[in-house]
Nucleic acid binder design. Structure first.
Lengths: 396, 396
DNA sequence: CCACTTACTTTCGTCGCGAAAATATTCACC
DNA sequence: GGTGAATATTTTCGCGACGAAAGTAAGTGG
């Protein structure tokens, strides 16, 4: 099993395209693939043969699913063998490392978390290697590791700057590769989540798509033309301190009236605590607001309006087909959905198309899954980090 | 001269890439090109030979320009023969057609305008053909025609919907091709201006770039990853009625407090007229504001703050390397630049990088030039409209 | 004049593709 | 069952684009 690990790694460009198309858009016949990829029928025979031989694709008998029994020879759908390879995804937080094992389709097959007791790069790498070894024992066909970290990540390998780990230029991918012998991809955690949603989640098949995460901080990712826009994380965090209401609340985590100061979980907790003097959890505040507690309702209502304003502005300038709200703080939508909608409407033309808004409650394992998706993209399918290579045959 | 018209039209993909690279990024040696395009040295000999033979490229002796006299055989820079082919660009407005003749590098070599007396498609096409014939007499090496129209344009050929011409599904490209025998490209006027700036203007070589035009209306265009984002004009104009200040002025051209109602030339003129009862031009209002007239200063100041807010929001969500303000209404920046700056600052994090803002006063000939650039891109270099073709080897 | 360096050209083999013909598999209809 | 049409896939063949490597050109510095 493990012996084949690298056998189908070196895919040609055409094979990659086929593999990705099947992976992302479900079972497809050779003829479908030829049409989608703009290739001839003959090329598809050529490209699919080695993929099937290597075990990455199979001819499914699932023809029964589509009963549209047309004339002629029936098509032979090809599908990815999702279990043929598994991947590890890690999300590193301040005090925990969350790990998942996924299939090629990024379905989670196992979870494994460990507390993070040291921020020293070597110790973190040790812990990741231990976790990987533990999981590798139970899942032998491991093909690669993805790691998501908050902060600036360069070349999908080096943590250029991470405020909460207090890291600068830590070659994390190398450290973990040394210890595990597995190929490792490191990426900004938001970027990883965006890729995961663009390939396998809410943004599948969309051309213009935005992800906004609410949690300890705010995350923002753009997909345009089907590809994630890089560079959104380059600014050292100032970019996301969008000023929503210059007269808004002042909290420790963000400029006065900024989205960070009005929407993030710490900011909301701070506001309620400052007013009541009690320590309360985010969930308690949401429940309080729903139950009519005036203090909680005021803070949550203000957060809802801020979120609506943010969504409207994003819709105005990016015009996405969908906006996904994710993260640990999206419970806000359930309680203050009305305030959000009102604010969206107030900030858009009355006849403008409604903003397709989707909410996805996500925990840390979803972030880890995002990192695994990065590993799938890069290691198996060779969808390389294009931020370094020059522009191709497509204009300036 | 004219006999060669189509002789270098069918460029291979590799030749196109070379031609575009040289056209946009100035004289380059074969070795430079090999590095930039990721090709081997041998390929560059092969690709450049037919381009030089056809007269599209020349070996310049301008080596003297770079006196960095390194060791070894000196490189032989190649440059585009900008005059080898000329292009026509038209901008159609309500009552005028503005025309320009440009070189391959989109330098304007002649201008020619005619009043538009009828909005009937056949008559408009007749007029464009007359103007083209007139210009073709003086510029025999005409290779193509670009036409910029406000409104929705499909397949770079059909005006799907144009409010000011009252057109629906007018196959303008076909009509003009019939009459002139020249290949014709039709595109939304803002899209054309954005392409022109991205290739030859303020956005040359930039990865993320925004164009905002202020005139009779507002225009907005995005360039991300070096390519213009398509689809921004699909919404029938509602999208750009960004609500800036819900309590703002109400004018005939736009929702209350929307950018259109606060920033466009008709809206500003309306506000001053409504208050003073006098008919005044935009320039008079700007002069009045600069001279201290309280009414003009109030309207212009409010417009400046609206513009600053807009710029800040764009900067926040798109994080471009540059924002270009263009159009007939950018005189606002000279008079109200301070108000704009203040509003930008109020809506961004205090430590966020300043927004690189560039202002370009542009008249209708600049719009016509944009259309000519579209013709250059599509007709000569074969940079086809990629909005219809399926996604390439690059993910979903 | 002779190394040495860099730029460019030539030659040759390989690879990926499409076109077209061949083959396979089904349905519709007799 | 047999025949023909429809659709999917495979096979075959030739072409064009590319890179590797060797060869040539044109300078510098001694």
């Amino acid at each position: 099993m493990t012996a084949l690990a690298a056998s189908w790694l070196p895919l040609s460009a055409g094979e990659r395209a086929v593999a990705i198309e099947v992976l992302v858009h479900g079972p497809l016949s050779r003829t479908d693939l030829a049409r989608r990829l703009g290739l001839s029928a003959g090329s598809l025979t050529r490209l699919t043969k080695p993929l099937i031989e290597s075990g990455l694709l199979v001819e499914t008998a699932e023809g029964a699913a589509l009963p549209e029994t047309r004339q002629g020879r029936p098509s032979q759908p090809l599908d990815i063998v999702a279990e043929s390879r598994t991947f590890l995804g890690f999300k590193i937080t301040d005090d925990m490392v969350y790990g998942v094992v996924t299939t090629l389709r990024s379905d989670i097959v196992a979870r494994y978390d460990r507390p993070l007791t040291s921020h020293e790069p070597e110790r973190v790498a040790d812990l990741l290697a231990e976790m990987a070894a533990e999981l590798a024992g139970r899942h032998p066909s491991l093909a690669g590791v993805g790691i998501g970290v908050g902060g600036l990540v360069e070349h999908q390998a080096v943590v250029g700057e991470s405020p909460f780990l207090l890291w600068r230029d830590v070659p994390l991918a190398g450290l973990v590769e040394e210890r595990t012998g597995l190929p490792v991809v490191v990426e900004n955690d938001v970027a990883a989540l965006v890729e995961a949603e663009a390939w396998f989640g809410a943004g599948r098949g969309l051309d213009r798509f935005v992800v906004l995460t609410i949690g300890a901080g705010l995350g923002y990712g753009l997909v345009l033309g089907g590809t994630r826009v890089r560079g959104g994380e380059e600014d050292r965090g100032f970019g996301r301190h969008w000023i929503i209401d210059p007269g808004g609340p002042l909290t420790p985590t963000g400029e006065r009236g900024s989205a960070v100061a009005m929407l993030t979980i710490p900011a909301i907790r701070y506001q309620v605590q400052a007013a009541t003097g009690r320590e309360v959890t985010y969930e308690e505040i949401l429940a309080g607001a729903a139950a009519g507690d005036p203090m909680c309702a005021r803070v949550i209502g203000e957060a809802g309006r801020a979120l609506g304003t943010l969504v409207a502005q994003i819709a105005n300038f990016v015009m996405p087909q969908k906006i996904l709200l994710a993260g640990e703080g999206v419970g806000l939508m359930e309680v203050a959905g009305r305030a959000v909608d009102d604010a969206v409407r107030a900030n858009r033309h009355p006849l403008a198309a409604p903003v397709p808004l989707e909410t996805k409650v996500s925990d840390f394992h979803d972030w880890a899954r995002g990192a695994a998706v990065l590993a799938i993209q890069v290691l198996v399918l060779g969808a390389a980090d294009s931020s370094t290579q020059s522009d191709q045959l497509h204009g300036p």
